[in-house]
Each structure stands twice: as structure tokens, then as C-alpha cells.
Computed example of a mutant assay.
Amino acid sequence: MQDDLLVVGFDLETRREVHVSEREPEHWKRLGYGGAGQLVCFYCFHGFEAPAGTRVPLVTRGRLGGKVRRHFAHPPGQAPTGGHGPETVWHITTKHLLAAWARSRPGVDRVRLEQWTEDHDRRADVEVLLQDGTKVALEAQRKLMTDDGWRARHRDYARQGVVDVWFWRPRVHFPHVVLDEGLPVWFYSVSKREAATSLGRPHARVHRWWQVPDLAVFGLHHPPCALDELERVTIPLGALGLGPGGAVLPEDLQKRVLDSQRETREEAKRRKDSEARYARAARESQERAARAPAPVPLPPLPPVPAGGLRCEVCRRPLDPLLARTRRHILC
């Protein structure tokens, strides 16, 4: 099932958007097409590809565990020509699924849609207030942004102490400045209810790599660096955590990353210890040399006789190098 075939419902009685996963299919059937008619298409009612106020009661399709996931749909022949824009469907659906996910996370105090920041510079798709006071902005980004456009929004959030977490529509190119700023990149598939992100593969171990301040980059790391080779991972949205730093990898992935980095740090420690032992041995050798007594000077060589040096045993000519011994080595 493609993301652009999904439909968000709108309950005319409660005046709120609803999703098929919130209640049992029988409940929606009573409210939708062939029932009370109060469950209508959110997009049609709000003027997307149809006149504002258009009421199209929805049908519920699919079944739990079936090949097609449960979803709302227009009755046959009642969808707008060409359907609803896939970007619009993805954005609105993702925004509400992210809000529902945030409400289900421990440590969350409040979740609100379409909220302005305190200085009214930015409006978050989903504003989350954690119990520790941290504010998190969840952004569902459906289109490519320029580096400057994204950086301006990110820094406005940072200036106001808001942690921004960006979820991009699948197959949309994202500004690589996101990685330069040290943020992870998340993609979200509505139809699969899955988030995807990338781990940075270990950097090449260059000369004296163990002296680099941040050893984490020589193991798997998240977020990746801008020019890293990447390993893509997909995660059910319900498995993601939410904390003061933003979205949190599940424990099994965290363990894999930390194990990789621990091995790197252990290898770096072995290199540093070996380097320290060598430096200590060299220093001790120099200290011993400094403490050693000065060598006793050798007596001067005897004067060379007029006829040249001769061995005092065999009387044959003697090399000057043997002048001190006065004999050949074998004599």
C-alpha cells in the first residue's frame, strides 16, 4: 500500500482528526459510509483537491494481520480526480502519527499540534514538552529544503532552547548540512509505520588514529558524519524512544553501536599503553646513561719506534691498532 493512498479521517461530531488504528474497525464502520456518516475525509473537508466543506463518508478496508494494512478510503467513485496529493497525505498523516507516538513515550508531559515558538518565529508540526522541561519540535518535512533554509529554522529552534527532530518523506533528498550540525536524519514511511535512519560506518584508521579526541568515529556511530559511508537501518516507530536529545535508537541498536565503539576504545588504549611503555623505557635509558660514571680515559699510545711497530713475541710488523697490546692477537 502506497503512502499516497492513505486517508486521514475527520469526526464531524468531535471535530478532530482520527486514524484507523485508534479504534476497532466496527466502530469506524458505524460512523462512516453506510453508518452515521460523521466520519469523513479530512482532506476533502478541509479543501484539499476539493471545495472546503466537502463531506465524503469513509469506508474502512484491510484487516489486522492481513496483506493490506487497515486504512480509511473513499467509497468507489467519490475520491477527487487523481486522488489527493501524496505530499499532503504524507505530511498530515505523519504529523498525527508522530503526535500519537510522542504521547505514548514515557517522560512526556504534553503534546500539541501546530504550535508556535515563544517568539512566534517558528511553528512546529508537533510540539512536545518533556517532564524535565525540555521542549522538542517534531517536524514532518515532505519536500527538499535548501541548506540555508533548513539552517535558519534549526538555529531559530536552538536559540530558543528547542530540540528539533526532523522526519523526512522517503526518497526526498535532505540538506547534508543536517549532518554537519550533528543531527541524525530520519525518514518515515506511513504505510509501513517505520522510521529509517543511517549509522556512520567506522572511519579509516589513519596514522596515529588513537590520538584523535573523538574515538567514536572509528566504530559505528549515530548520527553519522557528513561524508561517511552509511549503513541504513529501519525501525518500527513504536520502538523509538524520545528524550531530551530527540529520538532515541532502540536498545539493541544502541548496544551494537556502543559495542563497536568500545572495541575501538580498547584498541586505542592498547596503542596508547604501548606508546607510553616505549617512551618510559627510552626515558629510563637516558636517565641511566646520565647517572653512569664518566669513562676512564685510556693511556696515550706509546711512541712508534723508528723501524715501526713489531710484535714483542714474533717480532713481525705490528698494526698500529695493536700498539697497546704490543703483540698480535694469536701470539
Rank of each mutant, 00 (worst) to 15 (best):
K269P: 03
K143E: 15
V56P: 13
R324P: 00
E13C: 14
R151M: 12
V296N: 04
E231F: 03
D4N: 14
V40L: 11
P184N: 10
G243E: 13
P175R: 00
C331I: 01
L64P: 05
G83I: 00
F48L: 09
E114F: 00
E284S: 13
L249K: 02
L98A: 06
V206F: 07
H46G: 02
D259T: 06
W28G: 07
H207I: 10
R110H: 10
G219E: 07
H27V: 14
L258H: 14
P300M: 04
Q38L: 14
R61A: 09
A276F: 05
R171N: 06
D132V: 04
P57H: 03
L322Q: 10
G34W: 09
K29A: 15
K143F: 15
G161K: 06
T197G: 01
K255F: 13
V128Q: 03
D147S: 10
L253G: 04
V257H: 00
V111D: 07
T88V: 14
L138P: 07
L129D: 08
L322T: 02
K269I: 08
H74V: 03
R283Y: 09
A294I: 02
V313L: 07
D148E: 14
R201W: 02
V163T: 12
D121N: 12
D119W: 09
R262E: 15
H120Q: 14
A204G: 12
R70N: 05
D156G: 15
E127P: 00
V304Y: 07
Q2Y: 04
K95P: 04
A137N: 08
H221P: 07
H328D: 09
R55T: 12
G133N: 08
R69H: 01
G245N: 15
K192Q: 10
Q131Y: 00
L129H: 11
G65M: 01
A158R: 10
V8A: 13
R153F: 04
W210P: 08
A152T: 07
S104N: 08
